[in-house]
Amino acid sequence: MTNEVPEPERAAPWSAGDGPEPVVWTWPKNDRPALRVWSAGQWRYAPVLARQNWADGSVRYQVEVDLLGDTRVMVCLYQWPQPGLRTAHGSSVKPSRGVDEERQGDMPRPRPRRS
């Protein structure tokens, strides 16, 4: 009875009043894990951008997800676990702490020109 699944509640981003900064883990763009997010009556595929381990022991996932199925992708933060979140698949690589641009597949930053 999937109609009884509640939509997951979004989490607030970290702020200084929340205590120590969370430890953030990321994966390369070509091998991210993913969740399924229950939204607008369907399970939506949501690649994970980052996992946040908070000092209070809670875990939050930052995901990209098309919540309405209309191709508008949003970045959302969800505390794990919730009934409206499921694992879609894992990654074949271990995550790294912080953002490593080369592993993420972003364009490298230009080097400053010498005068």
Rank of each mutant, 00 (worst) to 15 (best):
A50G: 10
A11W: 00
N30Y: 12
A40S: 15
W14D: 09
E9D: 11
P13A: 13
N30K: 14
Y61K: 01
P8D: 04
V65H: 01
E7F: 10
P28K: 10
G17F: 15
V65Y: 00
W38T: 06
E9C: 15
L49D: 04
V5S: 09
V63T: 03
G57E: 00
D18A: 07
E64M: 13
R51T: 07
N30R: 11
R36T: 07
W38V: 05
R10Q: 10
P33N: 01
V59A: 01
Q42Y: 05
L67C: 15
D56W: 05
A40Q: 12
L68T: 11
A12V: 10
W38N: 08
E64Q: 07
W38G: 12
W25R: 12
A50Y: 09
A46F: 04
E9V: 12
W38S: 09
Y45W: 08
W54I: 07
E21T: 04
V59P: 00
P8L: 05
A40W: 14
R10C: 07
P8I: 04
P47Q: 07
D56P: 09
D18E: 08
D56G: 15
A16K: 15
G17H: 06
N30I: 13
W27F: 05
E21G: 10
A11M: 01
G17T: 13
V63R: 02
V59D: 00
G57W: 00
V24N: 05
A46I: 05
R32F: 01
A16D: 06
Y61A: 03
P20S: 14
D56I: 13
R51W: 04
V37Q: 05
P20R: 13
P13W: 13
A11P: 02
V48P: 04
V37T: 14
P28F: 14
N3T: 08
S15A: 08
R32Y: 05
D66T: 05
Y61S: 02
A55D: 03
S39A: 11
V23W: 01
P13E: 14
V23C: 02
N3A: 14
N30A: 13
W27Q: 05
R36C: 09
N53S: 09
G19H: 14
V48M: 11
L67V: 15
P47T: 07
N53F: 13
W14N: 12
S39G: 03
R51M: 07
A40C: 08
A46C: 08
R10A: 09
L68H: 11
V24H: 05
S15L: 03
R36A: 05
S58V: 02
S15I: 04
P6E: 01
G19E: 06
Q42T: 15
G19N: 07
P28S: 15
L67K: 08
D18F: 09
A12Q: 10
A46R: 06
W43F: 06
W43H: 11
L35D: 00
W43G: 08
W27A: 03
P28N: 14
E7L: 15
V48H: 09
V65F: 00
G57L: 02
R10L: 07
S39L: 02
G57S: 02
G17K: 12
P47G: 11
R32D: 02
V23T: 07
S39R: 03
T26F: 09
R36K: 04
A55N: 05
A11K: 00
A50K: 08
R51I: 09
E21I: 08
E9I: 11
L68P: 03
W27L: 04
A12K: 13
A40Y: 10
W14A: 09
W14P: 13
N53H: 14
R60T: 11
G57I: 01
E64T: 14
